[in-house]
Design a protein around this nucleic acid. Structure first.
Lengths: 339, 339
DNA sequence: AAAGGTAAGCAAACCGATTTGCATAAGGTT
DNA sequence: AACCTTATGCAAATCGGTTTGCTTACCTTT
């Protein structure tokens, strides 16, 4: 005994399948009494429309994908996973409430098999410039949106991560805490967040007549690379009193470097990072970071994508990032802190 | 112009749709020359079988789900996320290579919508005893397997996480390092891993005539609860020289407690945890943990589920957990260590 | 009474693949 | 020549919904 089909239900209700369909979709008028009878019977029989049949007719697969091109397994991996998973969890909820499945596309996916499963649309997480996934899906005319703009592709709808705002938030915070010589330690990958952060930093430096000091590191080097290079930097530029280190793996390394050089935080040096994940929270001292409101952003991304699939235009405004001040940049007795 | 269908391809190749279908599926013999022509043409035209149509015919949705009943957002959340995401990433790869989409089921999913999207099967991650999701899917006759046995449900196929082995691995390690009074700090949730760990601990204690000391804490209390309670424990039982703390959030708390009491690791106290995630790696000192080989386990879980869906029985053997020794339990000069 | 409008619902086509039963042709056997 | 095999491929049914065009019945209007 399989699951009841629309015909079973129609027979039981003494109507045609057409009427049952209309009773559910509302695309045509059905006598209210009949409709109620059908609905009641459906509940009783445990009828649910077969999604494969609906999809065949509608041409939709009912699956959207979430993809991050950044390798999971690099040194910065675990944090990246946290970032991605926060988004995935919220996006999955948003999608499920709309009867859409959220499918994870792993990094380095088996290209060949990617197009067998058709996706109705794809959400890219912080894509890089010329990301291969963008080309892949555009070639298949699969709607794409991104969380964090695709560099150089203003035409692709995106939820702006507001990295400029984030950077200025952190820089202003450091400045308020008394920092006058702030360096930026950042990655080399061509993502919007890095590009905007660098620009914001330079603007900030110019406005305050602060000599800019930027250290760009290959993300694959991870914590160890950052420790070595930040150590050098702090030795060459002992006057530095603030470090903005958006990549949290680098921040871990920077913290180790400061510790090795005997520079106590926040007294001798203040440090901030971007993503408020496990790394920031567990660091010693805990790192000031930014709440990007990823859960909210993920929900918006799903909405944006679904509207895009339906051909509806739509503008969304990402939430403003907020500061999470911690002991890496604020002395204990200097106002209230999040732990 | 939409995507080419099987009829388009058949027309172009000068054969019937039937022949095209057979050329791909191999279910009936097709002249090799014809088959090659069809394949070549398919490649050229960019033909891919419509998955919705295949699914309608086969009765499969082509979607499997990955569900963790443990809330994402509780105190232990971030680590749990890491654990889950490691599994999700690998499972997604395994699934994709088989043209199956892996869909995330968030905790507290919108029950109503869960059955609209039919899943071909579900992988549960470390379900608790009487997990509501088990009942939910069994009622819908959806095949279910789990990573970590479902307590009290030997009939549900599972990849054994081998928690007894894990516990004994850790206990033996501590013992080898000289610990003679080891306490167990664990959670209260009724998961197989906790049940087996407790049993293994009691057996170990009995075999060594070591007085057992077990501290059970509510997982939602997280790090802070663990810190307070472990501190009490260490004060009441100063003779303790080893702590096995499988829940890594508790291990963070325990570490803080030890630090507060001035007990240096590994000299005055040795500590080990289970999941080798960010928490274990970032702790000061880094925590000895266990590599559960989650990626491999995830791949096996997908295979097990797919075979189960096909009605094939199958026994799988989970990989043996391996120790990752770190400075929380091993002195610096005491052999080689992973960082 | 004729014309027009609306309410309610059905039959059949359709989405794109898979599968079953049958047809035709070529080759081999007796 | 009659018969059997094997190779090759097609037509049609099927999966379970959705959508379009049509029918019937009933009510209103002039």
């Amino acid at each position: 005994m399989g699951k009841p089909t629309i015909s079973d239900l129609a027979r039981a209700a003494g109507v045609s399948p057409t009427t049952v369909s209309h009773a559910f979709s509302g695309r045509r008028h059905v006598d209210p009494e009949t409709r109620e009878r059908i609905h009641a019977l459906a509940r009783e029989m445990g009828y649910h429309p077969n999604s494969a049949a609906q999809r065949l007719r509608s041409g939709r697969t009912g699956i959207i994908a979430l993809a991050s091109s950044m390798p999971f397994a690099i040194a910065a991996g675990p944090s990246r996973l946290g970032f991605l998973m926060e988004i995935a969890a919220s996006a999955a909820i948003s999608a499920l409430t709309r009867d859409i499945a959220l499918c994870l596309i792993p990094p380095q996916p088996p290209e060949k098999n990617l197009d067998m499963l058709g996706f109705d649309g794809v959400i890219l997480v912080e894509p890089a410039c010329d990301d291969p996934l963008v080309g892949h899906f555009e070639a298949r005319r699969t709607p794409v949106i991104s969380i964090g703009k695709v560099p150089g592709r203003e035409d692709i709808p995106a939820i702006d991560l507001r990295s400029r705002d984030t950077a200025l938030l952190l820089l202003d915070h450091l400045h308020q805490q008394g920092c006058r010589r702030i360096a930026l330690v950042t990655g080399t990958s061509p993502r919007t967040s890095q590009i905007e952060t660098r620009a914001a930093y330079r603007d900030f430096a110019a406005a305050r007549a602060m000599p800019p000091e930027v250290l760009e590191l290959d993300e694959t080097g991870g914590e160890d690379l950052a420790r070595a290079r930040v150590r050098e930097l702090l030795q060459v530029r002992p006057e530095l009193d603030g470090l903005m280190v958006p990549v949290d793996a680098f921040a871990s390394g920077a913290l180790a470097a400061a510790h090795e050089l005997g520079r106590a935080l926040p007294r001798d040096l203040r440090m901030v990072t971007r993503y408020d994940g496990l790394r920031a929270k567990l660091a010693a001292p805990p790192l000031t970071a930014v709440d990007l409101h990823l859960a909210q952003i993920a929900g918006m991304a799903v909405e944006l994508l679904l509207d895009r699939i339906d051909g509806k235009p739509r503008q969304v405004q990402a939430p403003r990032p907020t500061l999470v001040a911690r002991r890496s940049s604020v002395a204990d007795d200097n106002g209230k802190l999040s732990s």
